[in-house]
């Protein structure tokens, strides 16, 4: 090997060297990396504190090289609020799934957003409960089969999937709310840009920031990884449109 070799790809400093427990084809690993790269690039690692959810990402603290709290199910935004109010100089982010944030934690996320807590929420929406074995989530697609909706989600009985980014963007309090996806390289590049922006806005003390990330769960969807990735684009994306719903740097309508 020549001495003038250049490093073009390496593990972000914000990620630990532990091997993740995630299933093949799961996109948590990609999202972890995007978050870690954002912290590195903005120089935030040394003053960042993450809040782990209950769900597949419950062990996220093993994979990050930052301080972490492990929250009760759904309560991560409340922990983040308490921490950030005491230490406004630190960078606080939650990493939550759809069962955690949109079901049991709906109260906490709405009020944290409405108070304008200067935190960053990474909301991973894979339309199912992963860790508990594939039950229906508030974000499960109409007719989607899960272990608690074996005949498919019947919207006449349980309603339609909740669009969290749209819901939170109705709040008057200034915030940054966006939805991205990570099922293709192009989408990953864009997701990185948006997540980095969310952390930059927190660094600048601007506002509450939330990025919803459409994710896949091949194991509980009963698909192979490539079919699952395709399903995100074909089925989830039309119902959950991508984009920035609220941006303090854009003039408010």
């Amino acid at each position: 090997m020549s001495n003038d070799s250049t490093v073009i790809f390496k593990r972000p400093e914000s990620l630990s060297e532990n091997i993740t427990h995630y299933c093949p084809g799961c996109t948590h690993g990609v999202i972890h990396r995007i978050v870690a790269e954002s912290l590195d690039e903005l120089g935030l690692r040394g003053r960042a504190v993450g809040v782990a959810p209950v769900g597949c990402a419950v062990l996220i603290y093993n994979y990050f090289n930052t301080d972490f709290m492990e929250a009760p199910h759904g309560r991560a935004p409340a922990l983040a609020t308490g921490f950030k109010r005491c230490r406004p100089d630190m960078i606080v982010f939650t990493y939550q799934g759809d069962g955690d944030l949109a079901s049991i934690g709906m109260g906490e996320i709405v009020h944290a957003a409405n108070r304008g807590e200067k935190i960053t929420v990474i909301f991973v929406n894979n339309a199912i409960y992963g860790m508990t074995g594939g039950q229906m989530a508030p974000t499960t697609m109409p007719n989607q089969k899960t272990t608690t909706t074996p005949a498919g989600r019947d919207v006449s009985l349980v309603g339609y999937p909740i669009r969290v980014a749209e819901l939170l963007s109705t709040l008057r309090t200034p915030s940054f709310v966006a939805r991205v996806a990570v099922h293709t390289p192009m989408h990953i590049v864009n997701a990185k840009k948006i997540i980095r922006k969310a952390f930059r806005l927190q660094k600048e003390g601007t506002c509450f920031t939330l990025v919803e990330v459409l994710s896949s769960c091949p194991t509980n969807w009963g698909m192979d990884p490539s079919a699952a990735t395709k399903w995100v684009g074909d089925v989830m994306k039309p119902y959950y449109p991508l984009g920035i719903f609220k941006d303090p740097e854009r003039e408010e309508a």
Partner: peptide
């Protein structure tokens, strides 16, 4: 600072976050 929380469930968990800083709360 005082934060009026949305519920006592949230209060307990705000304490959890605040106490994790090592400050008295």
């Amino acid at each position: 600072a005082f934060v009026q929380a949305e519920s006592e469930v949230a209060v307990g968990n705000m304490l959890f976050g605040a106490a994790s800083t090592g400050l008295r709360t």
